[in-house]
Write a protein that binds this DNA or RNA. Structure first.
Lengths: 365, 365
DNA sequence: AAAACCTGTCCATTATGCAAC
DNA sequence: TGTTGCATAATGGACAGGTTT
């Protein structure tokens, strides 16, 4: 339809830029621009026959409403702001591309688009949000990686801006709309999985206790161990990087009566653990089980493959967009959702596994 | 300044939404809205003293021009369209998050923002671009992963839309503005590096010859081998996935007089090669050298670490935005840029390396 | 006469209310 | 009287050209 027209080059209409406007459609049909607008936005106000003629012309001419004009008039841009984070080389993929893709897809289905902003610190991020708001560029924001006392949440709330967060409100905020993944249940599943492989001395390599997510994941490990009658003395709390995971693993394995399984809070840490095992001449899987979290590309592609927890990012993205739309539409309903991650089992946690058993097994709990 | 105001909640101005407009500033200073506009966009037209008063009021009230109004008037949105791709689990990180972050940063510095679209096939991508154009949502596009006979390039050119591509114009198009990374030089450097480690039978595991990028990278390997007096009989052409890299490696090593070094066209393939070596009981580095391309997170975090070629994505992003800005400004100058990747050496290509020698060495050529 | 400022009209769209059939 | 279509005004900003001092 519009596919084979030239936009800027040939200006055969009255407009130098060649865009089709309401006026063009109106002229073509022989009605006023208002009727065209009504036919599209308020069909009840226009006679069925006229409406059909108008809609036919809309299709024929390939009319699409001008985003700026519509935004100006409606005070609504149909743009959702998202921040992109810098990825660090010492961390496994941040899943950002998967997440953004899913988010863009859901937004598209809802007739919205994503607008990016970028910042490396919280103050800068808040300033970037503020600028988008001041220039009336966005209707809402999607936040990622919330934490207790999150300044962004506080600022956006103060400004009365619609928000949905990937990451729960750790300070018990009942109002914030969020979607999160149940790390506790995920880590619990991973722990039970290695226990089922016969492991009894299961350690946790987690994040510092200052991290709410870290405490949540550690609780999953503790839950499982307690239920299974295993002790919970073997654990470490380290920053989320490769070197820290590696060093913590060495420390844990140097202890008397060392762990035979390592439940890690992230793939990054788990990959560090795999390195440490290799340095000690131990085989992941056969000698020491290792599991991660995130199911990053690196987990699938490293050797041996790393057992990990897959986050349902498509679902997260869908729910976030749905939530934002509800808030914008003025009918907020379910606002806080916890989703289950899926355990993806690979060789790093399988006792008898050789590299030939490379087919990954999914086990949903 | 504007930081501590409430946007939507308190409407203390004449506007229900609480945004500061030109009119507000004008009223506050006691001039017309036009003078405020002139003070900002055409300072020469307003007396210095008045201009200072106006600018002071702009700062004081926190005035920011309304994006939609400005776009409507100027026929320019200051938005740049970018497509986000779905990442596949059988491929190493697509560098998308690093690239997007850098792109967003450069765009921000140029006073622009990125708007995302999403599609899984070329036709859908073109339709998404078309929609953004028809709704006058974007001024330009940044493309990634161009190929010969690229339908997107063709369509955007036909429409007369400003574009800059990450990836050269493989069909010799002199007009397309692009930035690319010199894969041939990079692969050549990797090949020379393993040769310097004493390897003489160096194989290439590359992409199908239907891929221009694949041919380019293979040429780098061939260049180096020819210069060094090594033969170029050992090579494979496979799709860019883990399983293909693994299978190709087994085939190459099953041959009589097998290769002792594998120069791979991507980290994904190289990670497959590492898996194959492990399955044969061979040690990467000590027994067979392996190199990848992209320096993905997985390359840094796998064991042994994977030698790879780092793409200067910040530079790519900066150049792409600069190019787009030049085209939009009507003064296109340098339009085609080839950047050198950087060889990051890790254990997978070092003869005597043990996992303890984990400190990566960078070697720029 | 020139510097400084402002009026008018346009960008594309939509909510409101009025005229007409 | 009720339906149907249209003129008006407003959204916020920028530019050309005209008016003021």
């Amino acid at each position: 339809m519009t596919e084979d027209e030239t936009v800027q080059a040939s200006a055969r209409g009255p407009h130098p830029h060649g865009h089709v406007t309401l006026e063009d459609v109106a002229r073509h049909v022989g009605v006023s621009a208002q009727s065209v607008s009504n036919a599209l936005n308020n069909p009840a106000r226009v006679a069925p026959a006229t409406r059909d003629r108008i809609l036919a012309a809309v299709t024929e001419l390939g009319y699409r409403p001008n985003r700026s004009a519509r935004a100006l008039r409606n005070q609504r841009s149909r743009l959702i702001g998202v921040k992109v984070e810098a990825s660090r080389g010492d961390r496994a993929a941040l899943l950002l591309d998967q997440f953004l893709h899913a988010l863009a897809e859901s937004a598209g289905a809802a007739g919205c688009h994503l607008i990016l902003c970028q910042s490396d610190d919280e103050a800068g991020e808040i300033a970037a949000y503020r600028e988008l708001l001041d220039t009336t560029s966005v209707d809402a924001f999607v936040l990622t990686s919330t934490h207790a006392g999150d300044g962004r949440v506080e600022a956006l709330r103060r400004w009365g801006v619609p928000v949905a967060a990937f990451g729960r409100s750790w300070d018990g905020d009942e109002d914030l709309a969020w979607v999160d993944v149940d790390g506790r249940a995920g880590i619990r599943a991973a722990t039970e999985h290695v226990a089922a492989q016969g492991h009894r001395r299961i350690a946790h390599v987690g994040w510092p206790l200052s991290s709410e997510t870290g405490r949540d994941r550690r609780a999953g490990w503790r839950d499982a161990c307690t239920d299974l009658g295993l002790d919970t003395v073997r654990h470490a709390e380290v920053p989320d990087d490769f070197a820290a995971g590696r060093a913590a693993t060495h420390r844990l394995l140097d202890a008397p009566d060392p762990a035979t399984a390592l439940i890690c809070a992230s793939d990054t840490i788990a990959l560090g653990a795999l390195r440490a095992l290799s340095e000690r001449g131990l085989r992941a899987g056969a000698d020491v089980a290792v599991t991660g979290f995130d199911n990053s590309p690196a987990a699938a592609l490293t050797t041996p493959g790393l057992t990990s927890l897959h986050q349902p990012l498509e679902q997260v993205a869908h729910d976030l967009i749905a939530t934002v739309e509800e808030i914008l539409g003025g009918t907020p309903s379910r606002r806080q959702t916890l989703l289950r991650p899926e355990l993806v089992i690979r060789e790093s946690s399988l006792r008898g596994a050789t590299a030939q058993d490379a087919t990954p097994t999914k086990e949903t709990r």
